[in-house]
Simulated scan of single mutants.
Amino acid sequence: MVRGFCPKSCGMTQLISYKRHRFPPQIIAHAVWLYFRFPLSLRLVEEMLLERGIVVSYETIRRWGKKFGPAYARRLRRKQRSPHDVWHLDEVVISIAGKKHWLWRAVDQDGYVLDEIVQSRRDTKAAKRLLTRLMKKQGSVPKRIITDKLSSYGAARRQVMPTVEHRSHKGLNNRAENSHRPLRKRERMMQGFRSVGSLQRFTSVFSAVRNLFVPPNSHKSARATHLHRLQTMAEWKAAAGVLA
C-alpha cells in the first residue's frame, strides 16, 4: 500500500490510499492534475501520457478522476485563507439531458471560489440554500454581498443575514460572472454533462484546483508568478500524497 504524506502545516491528516492500483501514485496524480487543471478531454490526457510512454486508457483516467479528484479537492480546501469579507454571487444556466439547471456560485473579492451548488430552481429557496451553505462553510457572515438584479438574492439575504450589506447591480458583479468562463470552456470540451451529480462532482474538484493554481493578482512580476507556480505544485503534490 502506498500512502500519501503531508506535513502538519498543510492541515491534511487523512491519508490517501493507492492500494490495488497498478500505476504509481505519481502517474495517477499527474493524470488527474492534467484533466482538472487544463481544458483537456480524457482522450487528450490519454494521448499526452502516451507520448511519455505511459499506456493507460481514457476510461481509467476517468475513474481516477472520479475516485481521487474529490479526495484531492478536500485536502486542498483545508488550506487556511484570509477572511472573505465580500461575497460575489451569481448563477448560470446549464442544460443537462435537455433540462435547465442552475449552477449557483460564490466567489470572494479575489475571484477565489467559495462554494457552488447545482439546483433545478432559480428562486428565493435556491438562493437561501446557497447563502446557508456559505455561512456554514466560511464560519462567518461577510461584510457585504454583491449580486445582479435577481430579486431572489435580496429576499434570501433578508431571511438569512439581515444585517449584511447588499449591493445589487449587474455592473458590480463582473467578478462572479467571469468565474463561469473556465467551466464553460470545459463544458464545451466535454460536450456537456450527463447528470446533475456528475456536474456537481466535476465543478467541485475543478474549482478547488483552479483556486490553487490561478494567481489572485494578475499583475505580479514574472518571477513572482514563477515562484507561485512552484509553491502551488508543491501543495498539489502534498494534497495528492506524492511528495518525494
Rank of each mutant, 00 (worst) to 15 (best):
L50A: 15
H30K: 14
H88I: 07
I96W: 09
Y72Q: 10
H84S: 15
G69N: 06
V45T: 01
K128S: 12
L42S: 02
T147N: 04
R37A: 12
L40K: 00
T60F: 11
Q119Y: 02
A31D: 04
H101F: 08
A106N: 10
Y72S: 10
V32E: 03
W87A: 07
I28H: 11
I28N: 09
I54T: 11
R122W: 09
L89Q: 09
V118K: 03
K100C: 14
G69V: 05
R75A: 07
Q80T: 14
K79C: 11
Y35M: 11
K137W: 03
A31Y: 05
K125V: 14
R81L: 15
E59Q: 10
L49K: 08
V56F: 08
A31E: 05
L131D: 01
W102H: 13
V86G: 00
I27M: 09
M135T: 12
W102L: 11
K125Y: 11
E47W: 06
D148P: 01
S57D: 12
V118Q: 00
Q119N: 05
K125N: 07
G111L: 05
K99M: 09
P70N: 08
I61Q: 12
I28P: 07
V45E: 02
D108L: 10
E116F: 12
R43Q: 13
G69C: 06
D108G: 05
D108I: 10
E116M: 12
H30A: 10
Q80A: 14
R62P: 00
S120R: 08
L103W: 04
K136E: 15
